[in-house]
């Protein structure tokens, strides 16, 4: 059997999609170079086909004239993300006033698993982290979440277009290892978001530490992220077990926002100040692609990362003077 010549090995990335600098940025532009860099950033966010990965299940070089959209193999659309970023930017900048430290710990290239603390009846941490990294680092972020989303009409499609990925271990492995992307995960899951206000900033257990095994298998570093401010944005005061059973939800929250604003509060955040600290990457000292990893080591690494985030949270809270002004 003869090996056929690699047809797409020498393929060049498609020409930059036409971007109109007049319509793209909505934020006021100070000078022309900044406008150019904004345009360049938006172009750069479109994942370029990698010629070294012929089996990548993505936009093929020769297909640019066939494709009508830019939805990638995971359902994410850079075009939709761009619109969402434009709409979300005022919220990010003026409502939560998110501030980052340690962004240099997130690599410019290659896969990494971002692990953060999770809270809030409708958690604001995922959109803030994804928005922040995508605007600051010009890299897409895929957020792992409960696969239940996929079953809900409109919500499931929107969520997927905006970078949400069902939290299946193989999806995460592909994103990290094959496609070398950033993947955001909240190991606390719904236990984190369903926590009441008096338990704020106390990390819940990290489940069965499946995220550690994913990072080990795909051979990428884990980057812990501590988020302060999110716990006060939509805190849960009580949980109704009866309503949860009735609505088939993991928890039914009565939030402080609902108490303050009535039904409007169900979709309204308090303007708490967001501070996000990216901790140094944790390299897991194992060979990738193993059949299994020692349970003890997986749990130990999970605890190590959990403790790092918990310590960072306490450290940040020690220096925080105000919930609203940071």
């Amino acid at each position: 059997m003869t090996e056929l010549p690699e047809s797409d090995a020498d393929a060049t990335p498609p020409a930059n999609p036409p971007t109109n600098p007049v319509t793209s940025p909505v934020t006021p532009i100070v000078d022309l170079t900044e406008a150019e860099s904004q345009v360049a950033r938006m172009v750069a966010l479109v994942p370029a086909p990698r010629p070294d990965r012929p089996e990548r299940l993505d936009l093929e070089p020769g297909e640019t004239d066939i494709r009508r959209g830019d939805v990638d193999a995971y359902g994410r659309s850079e075009h939709m993300r761009e619109i969402a970023r434009r709409l979300y930017d005022p919220m990010y900048r003026h409502w939560f006033r998110a501030e980052w430290e340690g962004l240099e710990h997130i690599p410019d290239d290659g896969g990494a698993l971002l692990v953060a603390n999770h809270a809030g009846a409708i958690p604001a941490d995922a959109p803030v982290i994804m928005h922040g990294i995508e605007t600051e680092l010009e890299r897409p972020v895929y957020g792992l979440a409960e696969n239940l989303f996929r079953a809900i009409p409109f919500v499931g499609t929107m969520w997927s277009r905006l970078g949400g990925v069902a939290a299946h271990p193989d999806n995460a492995y592909r994103l990290l290892k094959d496609d070398r992307q950033l993947v955001l995960v909240f190991p606390e899951g719904t236990k984190g978001t369903g926590k009441v206000y008096r338990d704020r900033y106390k990390l819940h257990r990290f489940g069965r530490a499946g995220f550690i095994e994913i990072a080990m298998r795909s051979g990428v570093p884990v980057i812990p992220i501590a988020v302060v401010g999110n716990e006060e944005a939509m805190p849960i005061m009580f949980k109704s077990r009866r309503l949860a059973a009735l609505t088939n939800l993991p928890y039914f929250p009565i939030t402080a926002n609902m108490m303050a604003f009535g039904p409007l509060g169900a979709a309204m955040y308090f303007p708490s100040k967001f501070r996000i600290r990216v901790l140094p990457p944790v390299y897991l000292d194992v060979a990738p692609d193993q059949e299994r990893y020692p349970r003890a080591q997986v749990m130990a690494d999970s605890d190590r990362i959990r403790d790092a985030i918990q310590d960072a949270l306490y450290d940040m809270l020690r220096t925080r003077r105000s919930v609203w002004f940071g």
Binding site: A73, A166, H168, D170, R174
Partner: peptide, 12 residues
């Protein structure tokens, strides 16, 4: 199904 992986491998 909604619980499916995004790409089925033969062994799944």
């Amino acid at each position: 199904n909604y619980k499916d992986p995004y790409f089925f491998r033969e062994s799944m």
